[in-house]
Design a protein around this nucleic acid. Sequence first.
DNA 1: ACAAGTGTACTATGCCGCTTGTTACACCAA
DNA 2: TTGGTGTAACAAGCGGCATAGTACACTTGT
Lengths: 136, 136
Amino acid sequence: MIPFRLVLQPGIPLHEQVAFAAKKAMMSGRLRPGEPFPSVRTLSRELKIHVNTAQRVVAALTQEGLLEVRPGIGTVVCQPAPARRYDRGRVLGPEVDQLVVEAMKMGLTLEDLQETVEERWRRLQPERAAAKANQP
Amino acid sequence: MIPFRLVLQPGIPLHEQVAFAAKKAMMSGRLRPGEPFPSVRTLSRELKIHVNTAQRVVAALTQEGLLEVRPGIGTVVCQPAPARRYDRGRVLGPEVDQLVVEAMKMGLTLEDLQETVEERWRRLQPERAAAKANQP
DNA sequence: ACAAGTGTACTATGCCGCTTGTTACACCAA
DNA sequence: TTGGTGTAACAAGCGGCATAGTACACTTGT
């Protein structure tokens, strides 16, 4: 079975959605470092997606350092790179800007937005903590 | 002169970038309710954009309730609609999710993310407060 | 009445990304 | 050898984006 769910959404590239679902699974702990990642052809079959599209997902995740390729074997979830936080605001600046403007547009306060961010953060964290506890 | 700046970024639809720049100007207070919005043909000339593209921007902002059209006259910045906050998390949920996952990927803590959000929020707010002070 | 400005609609064209389809190659394991 | 793995290349269809040109109904200022 595929280690993540996928609810199709129109207007967003398919390979992006799949890659994001995989990323989300990794961050939440449902896909832990060292575990095997579904093969390109398995992804293609289970998600009813063309092989080329699945390949594009694997390529993207590999380029981001989230997957490691064992030639002839398959791909494996990577150990997270040593946290390099020197930039921070610069990288996800535009994304935060867009979120802030959108929040202001609908009359939210800063506290409202902070609360929403915290809620979505904690929605992923518990599985992460449980995963760490089971593998010391 | 155009009441907002525009730094072109590849990979993002042009009309989206212009619309976002306008939205940002409205939220920050550089474009206040009742003020005239640049005409389609003015936008086209100043931003070196085709009229159709500019028209698409005006149409989008109008549909979002940010611009009001006076036929034959032009468009005017709208009064913000009465704050309806009944949904909140549901609307901008996916955007927050993407931001959270991206932050986790680069080893940020929740506090790091919150701090970034607050910084970008306050970067727009001061102009907003100043605009309110000048028009009681 | 006229000219100039406004938003809006329509068709057409070229470009580029997405997705699927197909075929092929190099690698490793049972 | 057989079957599984990632990877590459090419082609085709589809749709969105941006440009281009033309036209219409409207209002304002002269």
